[in-house]
Each structure stands twice: as structure tokens, then as C-alpha cells.
Design a protein around this nucleic acid. Structure first.
Lengths: 204, 204
DNA sequence: GCGCACATACCAACTGGTTGGTACGTTCGA
DNA sequence: TCGAACGTACCAACCAGTTGGTATGTGCGC
């Protein structure tokens, strides 16, 4: 038999999911604890039972973001290509395909939080860095293999190119927020794909 | 004879300069009106005499940012090159050279504000868009001339490349905030320069 | 060149609503 | 019956914005 606590996901999980959406919509500072409780359908008592402070929730949300997104990328089809160069290009296509719908649904939680908290809440910024750097690291092996196979890599490393892809995506999100839609972000990512193709065509 | 009002810059100018620094440090929402008044050395009465609301100041600050930065870029040496391709590359070098010192001093006011206000204060985001798009437009002529001269431009426009450069810079700022320093941003901008060089080498 | 009407630029004190956080009570499964 | 997982009621600090005032000009009739 299924108990009630199994049926209704516990307050902690609901708060973390609410944080993903609310903070991407309004930013960290403008999102109040009451906003999060309302969106999650729980009370303040539950909030401070699971998180010792608002900052504590932000750090947990960054970790939750890493887990959620890494599951999406692990299950994505771009890993199927035989050629590592094709895997990197297909990763970029996959990122481009995600640029659709509401801005709050395709932009990045940790990029948003780092922007406003780097000075006032360095612990949050560190959690954001762990998330972005960790995701970038999942690209490094494919990039390194593509470098090996094509002879590319004069003056740059797999790590720096992986971070560059993340920077381009973060910048694309900002332009999308400025212009109110994903179109400009798709153009930006198209340039990223062109760059990676040029890099790996060079030595071929 | 010089009057007292000439000697001490007026409260409006001091508040706008304070906004440039404080908002880049803490973000729009976390920067309070009192913070700005304290940093500018004026009272709240002066603030609400010159700006009808905090949002009104943010929009004025975005315009002030556009004026301040466009003066810097207009005076920069990268315009001196004869070859438009060299002007574009020298622009990127100029941007890379600015990536130094405190994070709040080299990051972008309007990118920061757009990130947190796109949903709650669309008027601020529109002012941020005007600033970024306006700056990107100053690159278009050089990019277009370089396309003409090298035969590059298959599948992309001068405008889209200009916006791509801005996206890369905005993303570089976010990574710098995550990691607490400008080093990663310089690596990102180095990739941007490599891309532009590859684009314009192709047809040569 | 004097005095009045008016405008601009600012200041100090205050207000009503909001915010992150706390104190304490209740429910419920083991 | 004990403790984890909540809920309710509350608080002190803080926040954007207001109020009511002063100081310093400035235009202008006379």
C-alpha cells in the first residue's frame, strides 16, 4: 500500500523545483521565501525546517539544477555518434533545440544566480561555478578526442573550448532576455557551431 | 567666479555614477535606494527629486552607461587600422585588455540588469537591449566591410556576428563572476578572436 | 537695483507594507 | 513515546516612496 507521504512529494523536493522556476523568472534576490512557499504549496515552517536560510536553499537549488540537467544531457541522443567531432556538433545542435518557449524555461539557473550573488553571497557563486564547470567537464573528453583525430588545437585546450561553449550559451540567454525571445540566442549558437566546425575542419 | 553648484557635481550625476558601480556589484534588486544615496553622498529627498522611482533610475543608468561606454569606444585606438578585418580583430583585443582588475569594474551594467529584470521590469530590459544593440551596431560597418573584402559571410550576417561578439562577452562576464576573476573571461575572448580570424581567413 | 513671485534643488523624518527568520504547537509513523 | 515533518502566528529590521520643509537662485515689474 502507498502511504500519503509517498503520494505527495515532500516539501523539500517541491521547494527545490519551485526554486528552479521562480529564480529563473525573477532572479535570486527578488524571489522571496514566501514566493517559493506559495509556488511549492508549503508553509514557511516547512521551508525553514529543510533549509537553514534562503542562501542555503540557493546552494541546494544549484546542486538540484546540476542533477536535473545532467540527467537530461546524459539521456540526450548526441552521444550516439561515432565521430567525436560529430558528438560535439550534435551537442551544440541539442542546446540550440532547447532554445524554445518561455525564457524562464530554457535559461540557466546558475548563470542567473551567479550574476547577482558573486559579491554578496560567494558561497552561492561557488555552487554555480561547480555546476557550470562540472557540465563543461562532460564535454572535454569528446573535444579532446576530436582534437586528436583532426589535429586541431593549436593554442587552445579542450577545457578552454568547453568553457567557451558555456560562455556563449550564457551570453545567448542574456540577449534572449533583452530581446524577449529565443531567436537571437539561436543565431548566437549557430555562430558557435560554425566556430567548432571551422576548428575541426582545419586539420582535416 | 565659480558658484558652489558648479563645484559640486549635482546629485543626479553622482547618483548615476554610483548606480554604475553599486548595481554591477550587487545587482539591481539587492541595491537599495539608501545604498545609492549613501554611495553618492546625497539624501533620499534628492533621489526622488531627480528620479520618480527606482526603476526610473535604472533606465536612466542604462542610458548613462551607453553614453559613458560609447565615449570610451569612440576614443579607442582600434579604429585606426586601414583593413576593416584588422579593426574588428583590434576591437576584440581592446575588449580583452579591459578584462582586468575588480569584477565590478569590467563587467556590464546592462547585462547584469537585464538578467534579473526581464520579467518583472520589461522597461528596464528594453533599455538594456537598446544599449547592447546600439553598441553592436557600431561594429556592423567594419564587419560588413571585412566580409566584402574577404568574401566571407556564407550563411551569416554582419549583424548576427556583431551580436555574437556581445553574447560571448556577456557570457565571459558570467564565468568571471563564477570563478572570481578575469582569467577565464580572457580565454573565452581568445576563442572569439580565433573564430573571427577563421571566418575572415576562409575567403582570403 | 529693489522686492516679490516662482522654480529648482535638496534635506530630515516618517510611513505602510514587506522580508528573512523565529517560537511554538500539531500531526503522524515507528 | 519520541522525533521528524510540517503548520500558524508572529517579530524586528528593512525597504521604496512620501511629506513638509529650507536654501538658493531667477525673471520681472517698477
Amino acid at each position: 500500500m502507498v502511504s500519503q507521504t509517498d503520494l505527495q512529494r515532500d516539501a523539500r523536493a517541491k521547494l527545490l523545483d519551485a526554486a528552479l522556476h521562480e529564480i529563473r523568472l525573477r532572479g535570486y534576490t527578488a524571489t522571496t521565501v514566501d514566493d517559493l512557499c506559495r509556488a511549492a504549496g508549503v508553509t514557511k515552517g516547512a521551508f525553514f525546517h529543510h533549509f537553514k536560510s534562503k542562501q542555503d536553499l540557493a546552494i541546494a537549488a544549484a546542486e538540484h539544477w546540476s542533477e536535473t540537467t545532467s540527467a537530461v544531457f546524459a539521456a540526450a541522443p548526441y552521444h550516439a555518434h561515432d565521430d567525436p567531432r560529430d558528438r560535439v556538433l550534435a551537442y551544440i545542435d541539442f542546446r540550440a533545440a532547447l532554445l524554445d518557449g518561455d525564457i524562464a524555461d530554457f535559461t540557466c539557473l546558475v548563470g542567473t544566480m551567479a550574476q547577482e550573488t558573486y559579491h554578496t553571497h560567494p558561497a552561492i557563486a561557488a555552487a554555480c561555478d561547480a555546476s557550470i564547470s562540472g557540465h563543461a567537464r562532460t564535454l572535454e573528453a569528446d573535444i579532446a578526442a576530436a582534437m586528436e583525430r583532426t589535429g586541431a588545437g593549436d593554442g587552445w585546450t579542450a577545457r578552454s573550448l568547453a568553457l567557451h561553449t558555456q560562455a556563449v550559451l550564457q551570453g545567448a540567454f542574456i540577449l534572449a532576455k533583452c530581446q524577449g525571445g529565443p531567436e537571437v540566442a539561436r543565431d548566437v549558437v549557430a555562430h558557435l557551431k560554425r566556430y567548432v566546425r571551422l576548428l575541426f575542419d582545419k586539420g582535416a
